[in-house]
Amino acid sequence: MKTKFVIGITIIIGAVIIFFLSGGVKGAKVFYMTPDEFINAKFNGGERVRLTGRIETGSVKVSSENQELNFVLEDDKAKINIHYSGNVPESFAEGVDIIVDGRMGEGVFEARDIIVKCPSKYESRLKEKKKVSQ
């Protein structure tokens, strides 16, 4: 009886694991994408993505009152208009590589988070990131 009992529990827990991991709970997968990949993927909005790219020089517009930020994120092939409201991250500057987390709105990508510097603990990781994006 005891072994059956243990096996039963193991099966239940196993089922719970599969449920959790197979996306049985809400929250879709989030992917990193370049602007080019994003445009080609033809997302019609809704899906959350993390765009990695460069801030186009001359594209940044900040409205001082309510801290609205508009800019263009680009890679070598494509450009996307980004809108963000909130405090402008300090290291945010034209030509800098950033990650934009958010989803496509009407004609403009609504960012909920802008990550300028990789929040990594080790410097070598930063270097690595830079090398890759060059």
């Binding site: 959790f20 991991l21 709970v25 809400k26 929250g27 997968k29 989030v30 992917f31 990193y32 994408m33 993390r50």
Partner: peptide, 14 residues
């Protein structure tokens, strides 16, 4: 070939 991002939401939810 896709780069998956598992952030705070992925972990908190589970």
């Amino acid at each position: 070939g896709k780069e998956l991002y598992n952030g705070e939401e992925f972990y908190n939810l589970r």
